[in-house]
Amino acid sequence: MMPSVEHVDTNRPRGPVRPMRRGRGTRPGRRLNPLRALFAAVLAVGMLTTAACSSADTDPGSAEPRELVVFAAASLEPTFEQLAQTFEAEHEGVTVQLNLAGSSDLVAQISEGAPADVLATANERTMEAAGDFVTEPVPFATNTLVIAVNPGNPRGIDGLQDLARDDVVSVICAPQVPCGAATVKILNATGVNLQPASEENSVTDVLGKVASGEADAGLVYTTDIGRAEVDAVPFPEAAEAINTYPIAVLRDAEQPELARAWIDLVTGEEGRAVLAEAGFDQP
């Protein structure tokens, strides 16, 4: 028994990985030269980047196929997708690339250098945050808050005041995001003392909590109601915070003319009709 135990002990690996640095005997003439390897690594990364750039540079040789990149607030998804189809039909060889995300995310992406032609945000504050990156934003739609409740409104929620009831679990957007800013404005104006169970990062999260039944009620935009299994309870105090959506051409737009054409479509008759159908109002 003993010898075999000894044997097992000596051969047992002492750790998952032996560190290869800390080598005591680094003699000259070894093939491991960290500086040379680092240089090679930097070179390799450089070559990869150059290759990626040059392949992108090859296509604009033919002028025909063009791409319009539209950054839009997530709440605009159904309307802008519909308008993109119209736009592509009206402009031959043009593809509309929609990047839909939270307005703050979009502005962050643009200020980090993401290429875009048009920016449409869910409130004016986020558009102001885009600062010099955009030119002359124009308002094109408005949206108001509404109470989202479980289907059939089992808790009998009639108005804003009911959200402060002890037996009602309410969820709102955090003040840092557009829907939360509107919520705070309304609560301050009406003096309703709401103790939310959670302050979510987006309308989608509020909707999710109400649709799953974890929360009894939440404040979301009128246009969001159709996206989930919830019912809407409108309340008059919503008029205290009408959210205005601005749209603008990017200063560094690669397709400024197409960008202006897109804004004409959105603010034109067809755009207004599509937006109205989704529940948006006109500014």
Binding site: R30, R31, A40
Partner: peptide, 19 residues
């Protein structure tokens, strides 16, 4: 594992992807 003084030689190129 045993001695620590004698080390297997790694090929130099392996440092490139590692870095």
């Amino acid at each position: 594992g045993r001695t620590g003084r004698e080390r297997a030689q790694l090929p130099g190129w392996i440092l490139v992807p590692a870095i």
